[in-house]
């Protein structure tokens, strides 16, 4: 072992990390080399000095300052949690909430003709051409209103032309609303005409319709509130027993009367009684007369 080897191994020697054969070789060299002995001793003194350095003491309030930092960290952590937790937790909750709201709105839309109507009225009326081949458009002279029907699978695309009777629509705020009535008819289309006639007799009208005449037909009707009970009674009567043909002679009921006379014996369902002749007031409701809207679901008899 030469001097260079000894200098390289001096730290290991002083830290007692030499293998036995290295240790004996190094000590043998130190026995004959005063320069290496001096270097080793100088390094030992340096290490000793380093070890005698005093600890650098912390301030007296070190512990309380650590606790203050911990408290501050906790507050920041809570704030961070509120801000960042949505990524893990709140986003799924929000998505769930959105889905639930969507389902609720959709449910209300289909269950409430008023909502559907208002939704449609907010959309500019489509031209018949734009409605496309899949649109079953029907125009109806009922209070000067035109109704566009579209495919049932795409109800949101439905739009209805704005009614000329805008003033009547504005008075809807004062109109009370009622639940849907269901009736079963042999001939849905024919029954619809009878309802129209009955409404005309009572000063009411058909506001809108959905569905096809050969399947379930949903009618939204409006009539004076004072005639609601009578109208519903007529419907029930029509469902339960023979419904008399109208005896009055309003223009719109001429065909109905004829049909009623032709079908005096057939099943009672799908026929509407006309109990009395309508007055001029009934046929033409006053604007300040409280109106009620009803939904009528006409089901074809199976």
């Amino acid at each position: 072992m030469n001097c260079q080897d000894v200098r390289e191994l001096s730290s290991d020697y002083l830290d007692r990390r030499l293998a036995p054969h290295e240790l004996s070789a190094l000590e043998e060299h130190l026995g004959v080399c005063p320069d290496c002995r001096r270097e080793i001793e100088a390094l030992r003194a340096t290490i000793s000095l380093l070890g005698s350095l005093d600890p650098v003491e912390t301030s007296a309030d070190f512990l309380s300052r650590v606790h203050r930092k911990l408290e501050k960290e906790s507050r920041l952590s809570r704030i961070r949690g509120w801000l960042l937790e949505p990524i893990k937790l709140k986003v799924p909750l929000e998505i769930t909430a959105l889905v639930l709201v969507g389902i609720l709105v959709s449910h209300l839309y289909y269950r409430s003709p008023e909502l559907a109507k208002e939704s449609r009225l907010s959309v500019p009326p489509e031209s018949p051409q734009a409605a496309g081949d899949s649109t079953a458009e029907r125009s109806r002279e009922a209070g000067g209103r035109e109704v566009h029907e579209r495919d049932r699978a795409e109800p949101k695309r439905r739009s209805e032309a704005a009614e000329p009777a805008a003033a009547a629509e504005k008075s809807l705020d004062a109109v009370s609303r009622a639940a849907a009535e269901e009736v079963v008819a042999d001939d849905v289309a024919s029954y619809e005409k009878k309802v129209q006639a009955l409404l005309a007799q009572m000063g009411g009208r058909i506001l809108g319709q959905e569905g096809a005449a050969d399947s379930v037909l949903l009618l939204t009707v409006e009539l004076p509130q004072s005639r609601q009970a009578e109208f519903l009674a007529s419907l029930k009567e029509g469902r339960a027993a023979e419904v008399q043909a109208p005896k009055s002679k309003p223009q719109a009921l001429q065909g109905l009367k004829k049909e009623a006379e032709d079908k005096r014996d057939p099943p009672a369902t799908g026929r509407i009684a006309e109990s009395r002749a309508p007055s001029a007031l009934e046929q033409s409701p006053r604007k300040d007369q409280p109106m009620v809207r009803l939904q009528l679901r006409i089901l074809p008899k199976k």
């Binding site: 600890p55 650098v56 070190f62 512990l63």
Partner: peptide, 25 residues
């Protein structure tokens, strides 16, 4: 352990004030 952590920090950073902050952290 505070003084040992402080000692390492002080000798590594060369600044007592910074070392104390770091030791707390």
């Amino acid at each position: 352990y505070r003084n040992r952590v402080m000692g390492i920090a002080a000798r590594m950073l060369g600044d007592r004030g910074e070392a104390e902050e770091l030791a707390q952290d």
